[in-house]
Design a protein around this nucleic acid. Sequence first.
DNA 1: TTAGAATTATGCTTTAGAACATGCAAAGTT
DNA 2: AACTTTGCATGTTCTAAAGCATAATTCTAA
Lengths: 233, 233
Amino acid sequence: MIIKSTLEKVISEDLAAIWSLLNPEEKRLITDNFEIHNFKKNQIIYAEKDHPMYLWCLLKGKVKLYKDGIGGRQQILRLYRPIQYFGYRAYFANEPYVSSAAAFEPSSVGSLPMDLVKSMIDNNRDLAWFFIHELSKNLGGSDTKIVTLTQKHIRGRLAEALILLIDNYGFEDDGKTLKIYMAREDVANLSNMTTSNAIRTLSAFAQERIITVDGRRIKIVDEAKLRQISKFG
Amino acid sequence: MIIKSTLEKVISEDLAAIWSLLNPEEKRLITDNFEIHNFKKNQIIYAEKDHPMYLWCLLKGKVKLYKDGIGGRQQILRLYRPIQYFGYRAYFANEPYVSSAAAFEPSSVGSLPMDLVKSMIDNNRDLAWFFIHELSKNLGGSDTKIVTLTQKHIRGRLAEALILLIDNYGFEDDGKTLKIYMAREDVANLSNMTTSNAIRTLSAFAQERIITVDGRRIKIVDEAKLRQISKFG
DNA sequence: TTAGAATTATGCTTTAGAACATGCAAAGTT
DNA sequence: AACTTTGCATGTTCTAAAGCATAATTCTAA
């Protein structure tokens, strides 16, 4: 059974933060209701205004959480990597989604009915704390983002976006090349600028030997400088 | 005893969302550890980078949660009214505060040690749900704010700020005058613009008979128009 | 009561970044 | 190979909003 075997793999990788919090009965409930979905590159997992029904767990691939704004402009709010959970906030807030989730690259995502999650939280305080902690971290991140995206200049915002990519997805084996390959448009959507300006500023950073750019392959040459640019404003 | 009597008043006003979730023993624990603090206008309740120790409950007055940004520019993140709770996010995230809280006007604020709150959550699932719900609502709000503050134009942002003030603090008895009197600078800090532009745009709205302005007294004349301006972008 | 400080109001100048246009190059399609 | 599509790069123009200067007004304190 593909569901179980993938799940076992996940567990064996000891990445499932939630899993270790559960008792055997709860684990059985989950394996019985857990479903795996495969999404193609850029495929939408759920969309703004949808009604939340599932807890999603990214098993393989990369997922972006974003919000469509004025004139088709998109703002990327958060990025997910295996094994992370998403899609639960709106359910807990008892409102439709205010953002959309899409696969950045071919991804496997598990789903679990939120009603089940809810009843499990009722009986498992560790699980409650898991979500309280996640929500609190995310809220701090969003509050900080409000200020940096509105007040920092383009170079600072791009530097910060690159650092976010480092922190989220890390490097290839060479220890320099970003392990995510995204279109300039997505870089722009991450750092609140137009695609033109993302291209321009990436070029500027390359010129200044802070990074090198080869298509979508970005090598971080001077991370310290990057962090400095990000901080100054 | 002033602590108890004020608390009783709060309860009698049936505004304490948390209170009704508690059993008698928990209520006693709270009254024993609850302390009331009075803050003057503009006094800081806690500051960014402080370590969170208390759950704060606004009893009387108005409080702003804000973040200091580039060049002394401030961004107001959220506004609180009685009876609302704040200051708990950082504790749950296990990190220092990323924002500061200050009294907008003379305010009474109750404090309760977070360690106590934590142990109460451990034994009271309704309390856990209260915070999960609050955090989820706030996170949705912040995510939305990221997009509106970065993408909407000045008029849209000011309109939105005014609507926020309506929703948060409502009107005086005339049903038109905003029940909050804030400096232009704070209006600016709420809607991500300079003080000059807040003044200018308020004047423009007055010219267009959407509002009237008399010092810090703002009357909403055409709320529908305001909502329309807020939506367009 | 007057001096001085803050706050509000407005006009003028400057600029960061958006919008637009165009050129290339790579990659897929027929 | 000829075509189309898509994404990257760069130069030019334009504008929303910041920055700055200066009054007018209100508030504060001696």
